[in-house]
Design a binder for these strands. Structure first.
Length: 230
DNA sequence: GCCCAGGTGGGTA
DNA sequence: TACCCACATGGG
């Protein structure tokens, strides 16, 4: 909780304006973002939404090459185009094009159904549950995974579920808190990525995190006393 | 030129 | 169950 308060104090309450949009739009945006940086994700989504209305009944029918072309800038574009077309078809057929039905189910049930869709793994399912259904879950991306290990919140070998549950249990079961923490942790992770020199004095976690360091360039575990941050 | 980016799914042991 | 790898473009 102390970490949460420091992050919020440092970054301020995150803007949630860009969380607007339908669950399907969130899904498409999240699929595009898989293993892709923000800038390219945004550009690709913009290109796709300028060409087509982001609705399952539309994307299910369009020529896959058109989706590929829009997504090229984001990388992994052939995979993502195939997945987007297929997931659109399935949502149209199974849920009559409306993800809200699934999202209103109990968390575990909804997660299971979402993860049965192509291109939807635990991270993407949890994004939908948090961003659109406002359920108190913590999606774990690479930044959050790395940070929670560096902070010693979880074992070095911890997997997705272990990390998710650990962070969820550290926080009040409120979706607003989960959302703010999720965005703040990613913000921190991205700032760390950008940082070239250690700046412990301004790090929002200064005395807590001492061990934050990217697993990068074959890092030496003996160097964990260095704090890299924004 | 190398490394990495808000993962997922298929394959192997 | 637990790793390993392909997918692929663009920016630092």
């Amino acid at each position: 909780m102390e970490i949460y308060e420091r992050l919020i104090k440092f970054f301020g309450k995150p803007s949630i304006s860009y969380l607007s949009g339908s669950p399907f739009e969130t899904l498409i945006r999240t699929i595009i973002s898989q293993n892709t940086n923000w800038r390219n994700t945004r550009a690709a989504y913009k290109r796709l939404s300028e060409k087509f209305e982001i609705k399952p009944e539309v994307l299910a029918e369009v020529d896959i090459r058109e989706i590929e072309e829009a997504l090229r800038i984001a990388g992994l574009f052939r995979n993502k185009a195939r997945v987007i077309k297929e997931v659109s078809k399935q949502i149209k057929e199974k849920f009559d094009g409306d993800l809200n039905r699934v999202l209103s189910m109990p968390i575990e049930e909804a997660r299971k159904i979402l993860m049965s869709l192509p291109g939807v793994g635990p991270k993407t399912a949890d994004i939908l549950l948090l961003f659109n259904a406002r359920k108190p879950v913590m999606p774990v991306d690479t930044h959050i995974m790395r940070i929670s290990k560096r902070l010693g919140l979880v074992r070095e070998k911890a997997g997705y579920e272990e990390i998710r549950k650990t962070i969820e249990n550290l926080l009040p079961k409120k979706s607003e808190v989960m959302l703010e923490m999720h965005l703040a942790l990613i913000r921190l992770g991205r700032e760390i990525c950008k940082a070239k020199k250690p700046k412990c004095d301004v790090c929002p976690l200064n005395n807590i995190c001492r061990k934050l360091l990217l697993r990068r360039n074959g890092e030496n575990r003996n160097e964990l006393s260095t704090c890299y941050s924004a």
